[in-house]
Amino acid sequence: MDELITIDDLSFGYGSSSLHKNINMKFSRGKVSAIMGGSGCGKTTILKLIAGQLIPKSGKVIVDGQIVHEQDRDGIYNVRRKMGMLFQHGALFTDLSVYENVAFPMREHTNLPENIIKDLVLLKLNAVGLRGAQKKMPSELSGGMARRVALARAIALDPDIIMYDEPFAGLDPISMAVICDLIRSLNDALGATSIIVTHDVAETFSFADYIYFLADGKIAAEGTPKQLLASRLPFVRQFIHSEKDGPVPFHVEAPSYKVDLQL
């Protein structure tokens, strides 16, 4: 298979702590891959490592044949031009209108004349169903709409790679379904490679091609949704069926109850 992004023996941590230990991942061209795991297990960090915002302690991230962290500033920016990223809460520029937000990457990276930018912006906004909201400011949008505008902005320059950081967090079921649908259809329409970081099981299993499970800084499981549903790994079972106790314990490690109560 044709891999666009390869994560090779990657370790990362802030300061002396270590978050990831020797991780290997492969993201195939044209597929929607998901990275799942509990909160705080470093899912988003992987996206940042791919985008070159963080530098790994060891190992490397290879995007389209280039080792990300060995690039100089211009090199990283060149790699990033192939990427679009949807942030957890959209991260729309609050001082720009919806239209200007989507036009932003075009204005920054192309010298297109204004009328072509207009056509492109309306096209992208139409793709996410928000052509009617072009004049609004981000503060006037609902969470789901803001996410869709951010998605339009992420795909403004038709990127090869689209990364989604918690695209479903804090959305109502309707918006969630809309975003799900958009991720799949945009990926197929643009022929892009999508990486989703999430912990929403049902949505992800419904449309992802390949799923990685992260736990304790390692890959706990990987496979297609079908393989994972059939998996007998206790962690995967706990996660998929949202059981409160299992390999991930309900109780944080603590001395025995008796000691704490001073009995």
Binding site: Q53, R80, A91
Partner: peptide
């Protein structure tokens, strides 16, 4: 606030330097 709402990160990922912009 731009930093807290990830607007600066978003800019970085869009290959636009927040320092310049």
């Amino acid at each position: 606030l731009m930093k807290a709402t990830e607007q600066l990160s978003a800019m970085e990922v869009m290959a636009v330097s927040p320092v310049a912009r």
